[in-house]
Write a protein that binds this DNA or RNA. Structure first.
Length: 374
DNA sequence: AAGAACGCCAACCGCCGAGTT
DNA sequence: TAACTCGGCGGTTGGCGTTCT
């Protein structure tokens, strides 16, 4: 059974021959497609208009990119899919030269399996939890576990402890910290740039020393994304580090990284979905407030995606990062200028599909006023 | 070496919304 | 306003090449 447009005429189906392709290319490059329903007749093809359109869009279009997906494209797909779900056409708009069909196929054949292998639910992008207090035993210790049960628990046990300034001159191992130092250490380890602490230097020495990692090193950290806003707070709903399986202690006090620290982390956060963005400095807030109303600073998911790409980008882009002042790079406006694909659907969707209040959208962002489109 | 199983991906199917008659 | 057409989209299928047994 064909489409209604196909039933009126005897149409060929199946794979396209080179001759058919040539006819379609010749016709469209000369006349444009106009009405697709009239293309087959005018081009001398025994296909339905829909088939011609599909063939052109998915295969013959001259601006199509050929070859395998790059790692950057793969990351983009995952990131955008996390926000949009199976909206392949929308996702494809963020990948110049790629079609929705191509993205869909790549997702189903490759990415999906990879995520599952990493213990990530490809639909929700959350870690697959086996029980309410499950601590992820992922083989990849770069990832944090999102413990929803703990999140809820934390919400009930609202702490009144004062924040710990990680970069204060106070020794990190003061009495205030000891109670949860093991998990904190694991968390702090995650904050360090990749391979930064190969020598197993005690964390308190690292975080109180003058040899803190540079901003560039943080840009290469696999667990960091860089937002475009000048000030933001990634919030942790709660977390347990997979590193500290034995201790299995959740962080019970907020940790604030001062914006006046040698390394200003005010614009970085963990990729982990348990974070939200706010204003000010970097704060690990275990009060588990998944969504804050009236948040002033919001980060558009598209921007996050794009900025995240920077972190993982190839050497060429890393080189750019090294040679640019990151404080200048990360302005919202600059990110908007670099973006070329944005639509309302994207923003709207974040309010419904995001897990754990990753980027809260329980408000109407002024960013909604903007629209990029291709 | 041959058949089975698997994976990839081009193409199809059916539905939907917008525009037109 | 209903019926129809068309373009667009996401889900699914089936053919073909590759890998496994």
């Amino acid at each position: 059974m064909g489409h209604h447009c196909c039933t009126k005429q005897k149409v060929k189906r199946g794979l396209w021959s080179p001759e058919e392709d040539e006819k379609l290319i010749n016709y469209i490059t000369t006349h444009g497609h106009g009405s697709w329903s009239s293309v087959p007749k005018l081009a001398g093809l025994q296909r339905c208009g829909k088939s011609c359109r599909l063939r052109w869009i998915n295969y013959l279009r001259p601006d199509l990119k050929r070859g395998s997906f790059t790692e950057q494209e793969e990351r983009t797909i995952i990131d955008v899919h996390r926000i949009l779900g199976n909206r392949w056409a929308q996702i494809a708009k963020h990948l110049p030269g790629r079609t929705d069909n191509e993205v869909k196929n790549f997702w189903n054949s490759c990415i999906k399996k990879k995520l599952i292998a990493q213990g990530i639910d490809p639909n929700t992008h959350n870690f697959i939890l086996s029980s309410t207090t499950q601590t992820t035993t992922t083989s990849n210790n770069d990832n944090f576990n999102i413990n929803i049960a703990a999140c809820e628990s934390m919400h009930q046990h609202n702490t009144t402890s004062s924040p710990l300034n990680m970069f204060s001159s106070t020794n990190i191992y003061n009495s205030q910290v000891k109670d949860y130092s093991s998990s904190t250490s694991a968390f702090l380890s995650q904050l360090l740039p990749y391979n930064y602490n190969n020598n197993n230097i005690p964390l308190h020495e690292i975080f109180s020393s003058t040899t803190l990692p540079t901003s560039d090193e943080y840009h290469q950290h696999p667990n960091m994304f860089w937002t475009s806003t000048q000030d933001c707070i990634p919030h942790a709903c709660s977390m347990e580090s997979p590193v500290s399986q034995a201790s299995k202690v959740s962080i019970t006090n907020p940790i604030i990284i001062s914006s006046s620290s040698p390394l200003n982390l005010s614009r970085c956060g963990l990729i982990d979905e348990s974070f939200m963005l706010n204003s000010g400095s970097f704060e690990l807030n275990i009060e588990a407030e998944p969504i804050r109303k009236g948040v002033q600073t919001q980060v558009d998911p598209v921007v996050v995606v794009q900025e995240e790409e920077k972190v993982y980008d190839d050497e060429e882009v890393l080189e750019i990062n090294r040679t640019n002042d990151i404080h200048e790079m990360n302005s919202t406006s600059a990110s908007f200028e670099r973006s070329n694909n944005f639509d309302f659907d994207f923003v709207e969707s974040t309010s419904t599909v995001l897990p754990c209040g990753m980027y809260c959208n329980d408000y109407h962002s002024p960013l909604d006023q903007f629209a990029w489109d291709s």
